[in-house]
């Protein structure tokens, strides 16, 4: 039994699910944020595995763009977390509930 691209795809699917579970269950904005990064990296793994299986380069090129976009998201996200923390002294999203209904 060789470890082919399908294994990587499955690993990626697992990572993606872990990421979603993290976003849904954790309440610290930073941890949720890390979970989102995990989801994006699971996508990267999928792209690379699929690209390898297909013998096609565009999957690997896609990863470049995903990485850059993820970095931009990190910067904006961290800035928002810091802004919230400075104002409220917490990064717990459950305490961000002035609005509801």
């Amino acid at each position: 039994m060789t470890v082919g691209p399908a294994w990587y795809m499955l690993l990626a699917a697992g990572l993606f699910v872990i990421g979603i579970a993290g976003v849904l269950t954790r309440r610290n904005a930073l941890i949720m944020f890390m979970s989102i990064e995990l989801m994006l990296n699971a996508v990267n793994l999928t792209f690379i595995a699929a690209g390898t299986a297909l013998g096609d380069l565009s999957g690997q090129v896609a990863v470049f763009f995903v990485l850059v976009v993820a970095a931009a998201e990190v910067v904006v996200g961290l800035a928002i977390v810091v802004a919230v923390y400075r104002r409220r002294g917490t990064a717990n999203v459950d305490e961000l509930s002035e609005m509801s209904g």
Binding site: M1, G4, P5, A53, G55
Partner: peptide, 9 residues
């Protein structure tokens, strides 16, 4: 098992 250049199912 997984030939290169084949679509994955």
């Amino acid at each position: 098992m997984l030939a290169t250049g084949r679509r994955m199912t």
